[in-house]
Design a protein around this nucleic acid. Sequence first.
DNA 1: AGCTCACTTTACCTTGACGTCAACGGAAAG
DNA 2: CTTTCCGTTGACGTCAAGGTAAAGTGAGCT
Lengths: 133, 133
Amino acid sequence: MSETWGIAELAAEFGVTTRTIRFYEDKDLIAPERRGQRRVYHLRDKVRLQLIMRGKRLGFSLDEIRAMVDLYDADPTEVSQLRLFLDKLRERKGLLTIQREDIDQVLKEIAAREAQCERLLSEKQTGAKRASN
Amino acid sequence: MSETWGIAELAAEFGVTTRTIRFYEDKDLIAPERRGQRRVYHLRDKVRLQLIMRGKRLGFSLDEIRAMVDLYDADPTEVSQLRLFLDKLRERKGLLTIQREDIDQVLKEIAAREAQCERLLSEKQTGAKRASN
DNA sequence: AGCTCACTTTACCTTGACGTCAACGGAAAG
DNA sequence: CTTTCCGTTGACGTCAAGGTAAAGTGAGCT
């Protein structure tokens, strides 16, 4: 029998509150099994949560994230749907590519500042040593 | 004489409303010159706006963005400040590095799905052709 | 039976990031 | 002088993403 989890376990594991997880359910981001009135989470729910968290780290809104995870386990069979699906994928790809470029740019700038800081620091240190002799 | 801009020009250029730009000023993200009661934006303001927009694309809050742009034109002279500054830079770097990895991961997955879609599409097309002969 | 514990729903509250609307200022054009 | 623009401040509205508090359910222990 495959492993399942309670809401508190998942919350702890992902570092969010149970409220948050229920909220996501309310927004149709996940749909756990119910056993009586309790929620029971399977592996697929965990995977979805994983995707959601990644989406959040990337700054997407819950609506966007839902669209993405829905893409994830959609299985378009008709050709028209398939085309639409491909379009969405490419749109997503475009956005992420821009984000990547943004990040690369910032990382470069940070690296430059970092180097500059380190230079300054070592200068001031040797300066201090010399002054204390 | 160096070029300047009005609020509406900048708003159009960055694809936001004037309200948004004033809001950023209210939150101390920019501080344009005043000529009478009108705001006059110089190149440095444009650059700051550029940084702000990038920050937003990367999903940072306005508070975080202010911290970042302040870092940008800060010039820490004391050694203690310099160390703190370096720490902040490295923290930022860590976050962005994680984001980059997230993006790379997602891009990979998208690429796979894309390829799969294209395969399916071309199959269905040749299938349709064959069926129409 | 009473108690605890984990979980549930319902409902209102908060914070961030703006949108919207009202009321007004000044300059430039007809 | 009136109209037309563009701009201003200030107050209130709104939407997303949860926080928080209240009150209840059910299983299991003692």
